[in-house]
Design a protein around this nucleic acid. Structure first.
Lengths: 246, 246
DNA sequence: ACCTGAACACCGTTCAAGT
DNA sequence: ACCTGAACACCGTTCAAGT
């Protein structure tokens, strides 16, 4: 709403009318945010350097000043999404009360993150981690550190804490990828149309499936997630470690 | 070792020397087997229509007579890999003794399949299933049918069998993807070099991680897999279902 | 019937050149 | 300093044309 007459004097360098409003300077952060937004809006398969450049009003080549490669871009997207966990008021960096409450809050936070970015979460779950012992989806060193620290502060031995980290990771990975898969998200290396025909005609040869299909089709992901999470909590805890860590 | 003199008579149609030995006629099955071999040998990211054509001594366009699209090719790869389960002598289509033994054999069979095709398994785990209630990695209708049938034959109610199918799926998905991820397989949508620097220098800010890194780096996937599998078996079984399926 | 050549609309990435 | 144009070596896919 700036008064246009301010630049009306002869010879004044007038802001070109055709210029895009989002002509903010290019930064790595702006690029990553734009990439996440593009993935959320149009799916991972729409994210190309050229398309992202277009989204930012710039040629693709300009991005290379801030992002060394497409692969680095994807790593940055993962980091950006995972960092949202720090902003989740329901999730605490360290236990406030019991370790169970801490783990439950963290699990639900990661699930919210997955459901908020269903097209990006597969990247969080599957990009090669920085080190082999970093296990998705809790893949930032800072989170791993505070997860382990948090359990130690609640009386876990080092071995028990490591064991819990492993079990918690595979619990989250399995449940969340299955949930997204059922939502029709392509969690895999290539993008494609969603579920084709539910295949009622294919069920002719499978009488039991034909009978159970309605029950199988009912989703109870909330309940399943909480049930499995509580089963997990029951078998973790101080003094339950049985896998050596030396 | 065939005697070459058999075709030495004048005027005989001699096999052109320059012809490739693998000049077998193109078929869908040959294409799919070649695709699996290429993925196993060079990674998923090397599988392109053009590269696969070259592998088969043919132009990429020729493949389209047998495979409607690259996406269909990937679905075919998944099917080809999953079908290996039928050829695994350790895995039975239906329980021979207890349901526990049946599930254990099946779980280890799927794990062998994942480890035999580490670069292809992510496709098995993550390609959008034919119907939303088909849960990877046990994703063929025939396997789902016999899994459910097998549990019913061992006294499971329909609800318990469905519950077991869901829990078994997320167990396999979580554990096997984590195991492959630790092996440095890119389980995700883009191919890349393996683990970069193990990041010892990055650990400066994370004293607990620095201390526990050696323990974290120790892999006990066999033990972890079996431990989690037995925990799963303990909470399944007839009469334990608590998620409605109607 | 089966395969190819040429073409189209894309990719990621580089580098010299423009401002 | 920051961005672009042109170029290179790729993609998936189509279609008319060759044999």
């Amino acid at each position: 709403m700036a008064d246009p007459r301010r630049d009306d004097r002869a010879g004044g360098t007038i802001e070109p009318i055709g210029e895009r409003a989002d002509r903010a300077p290019l930064t790595r952060d702006r690029i990553l945010r734009s990439a996440v937004a593009l993935i959320d809006a149009e799916g991972l398969h729409q994210l190309s350097m050229r398309r992202l450049g277009r989204e930012l009003g710039v040629e693709a080549m300009a991005l290379y000043r801030y992002v060394p490669s497409r692969s680095d871009l994807l790593d940055g997207v993962v980091e950006t999404v995972v960092d949202e966990l720090y902003a989740d008021p329901e999730v605490h960096l360290l236990p406030q009360h019991s370790w169970q409450e801490y783990v439950i809050r963290l699990a639900h936070g990661v699930r919210r993150m997955a459901l908020a970015h269903p097209e990006a979460f597969p990247l969080v779950a599957t990009r090669p981690p920085a080190a082999p012992w970093v296990r998705p989806p809790l893949r930032s060193l800072r989170w791993i550190e505070s997860f382990l620290q948090g359990l130690l502060s609640q009386g876990f031995s080092r071995a028990d804490a490591v064991h819990a980290y492993r079990a918690f990771s595979s619990f989250l990975l399995g449940h969340l990828l299955l949930e997204l898969s059922a939502l029709g998200v392509d969690t895999g290396p290539v993008e494609e149309e969603a579920h084709p025909t539910p295949g009622v005609e294919l069920l002719a040869d499978y009488p039991l499936l034909a009978e159970l299909a309605p029950g199988l089709a009912e989703f109870h992901f909330d309940a399943e997630f909480d049930e499995a999470l509580h089963n997990l909590l029951d078998r973790l805890g101080p003094g339950t470690g049985d896998v050596p860590t030396d």
